[in-house]
Amino acid sequence: MFCRKCGVEVRAGAKFCHKCGHPAPVSGGTASAGARTPGGTASAGAGIPGGTASAGAWTPGSTASAGARMPGGTASAEARMPGSPYVSEKEKPGLIKTMPEQTDHNSDEQFQEWFSDAGDL
């Protein structure tokens, strides 16, 4: 399977792309992080026990971190939580992209504020 963000081949079973850190596609399936399943209601495998959240919706923040995972779920199968500020395309027609990409990837500016090149020893 291949990363939906950078296109590199991702090892089967991996939760994240080793190249860019993007949540990996769900192994063996067609749904991936943020991907929609037509008309679908999420199965238990989508991460919410007995859940009814529609596939293709998002978790708040969408960081795909360990903390974002839900019991029984996988990091890459995201479902929208109650009160989430994000809406699926189905709920908001015309919006092409509703999930922010990698929200825990802060800007390079912030990184540069704290880190400097290690330089020579």
Binding site: F16, K19, C20, G21, Q102, D104, H105, N106, S107, Q110, F111, E113, W114, F115, S116, D117, A118
Partner: peptide, 27 residues
């Protein structure tokens, strides 16, 4: 290879948190 200076905790806990939060996993 990027480095920071030492943060003194707990006095600079907020700066330490901001520093950690600026790290991106990539490449």
């Amino acid at each position: 290879m990027m480095t920071t200076k030492f943060f003194e905790l707990p006095a600079q806990a907020a700066q330490f948190e901001a520093c950690i939060n600026s790290i991106s996993a990539m490449g």
